[in-house]
């Protein structure tokens, strides 16, 4: 093995000029454009749900949808910050309020269904189509994000992937709400919740392999 001085000489010889990363917020903006294009493509390919206007005239539904969008947005901001060495790890807490709001709105939806329809309003079940859509939409979104934060591989792979997965799954869920109808809020909670959790856990468990595959080895 080379000595440290020899290694420094080699690295010095290889030190060509490089372009420093753009500020995180600009990169968040670029990724949001990509995410918007992918999710819009998905919504257009399925067509908007027929009851969209009626549904979105209810404040609770709008708040729930905005909460999922906010979760995606804030998790993306957190992802681009924690991926850079030296940034505060507290950025990871940024999406927490939006996640809480999202879960709370889904919980309130379940409560309303129960008050309005009794036990019949709490239809339990996992919509496989819903789950699949969240997972499969997360793949192109996730790959785009992974490519943009691949520098996090050797330093901060786990939290970067976890936050990134939350962001892509939340955007997928928000897009899904525009073309897919579910009978009860509980089904939305279960299907979206399991979909998001699955994307996050899969991403977390495979973060090392994903970064190795994308180009920078976490070692």
């Amino acid at each position: 093995m080379a000595t440290t001085d020899e290694l420094i000489a080699k690295l010095g010889a290889d030190a060509h000029a490089i372009q420093p990363l753009r500020p995180p917020m600009i990169r968040v903006g670029l990724w949001l454009l990509a995410a918007f294009a992918i999710v819009s493509g998905l919504v257009l390919s399925h067509g908007l749900r027929p009851d969209l206007i009626d549904e979105f005239s209810r404040p609770a539904v709008v708040i729930e949808w905005l909460a999922s969008l906010s979760t995606g947005l804030l998790a993306a901001v957190a992802t681009f910050h924690v991926s850079i060495p030296g940034r505060s790890v507290r950025w990871a807490l940024l999406p927490v309020p939006a996640v809480m709001l999202w879960l709370a709105t889904l919980g309130v939806g379940c409560l309303n269904d129960w008050l309005r329809y009794g036990a019949d309003g709490l239809e339990v079940g996992l919509s496989v189509g819903c789950f699949e859509t969240i997972v499969f939409t997360s793949v192109p979104l996730g790959l785009t994000l992974l490519l943009m934060v691949r520098h996090a591989g050797p330093v901060c792979p786990g939290p970067t992937i976890l936050l990134g997965a939350l962001s892509v799954a939340a955007f997928s869920a928000a897009g899904l709400s525009l073309f897919h109808h579910l009978n009860s809020s509980l089904m939305v909670l279960i299907s979206h919740g399991i979909g998001v959790a699955f994307v996050m856990l899969t991403g977390w468990a495979s973060s090392g392999a994903l970064f190795r595959w994308i180009g920078l080895k976490p070692l």
Partner: peptide, 22 residues
């Protein structure tokens, strides 16, 4: 020494992530 070399290689690989204003 192995650890130092590992850190130097990592720095080299992600030196574009350093923002000189910070």
């Amino acid at each position: 020494e192995d650890a130092v070399q590992d850190i130097l290689l990592t720095i080299h690989g992600i030196r574009h992530t350093y923002d000189p204003r910070l």
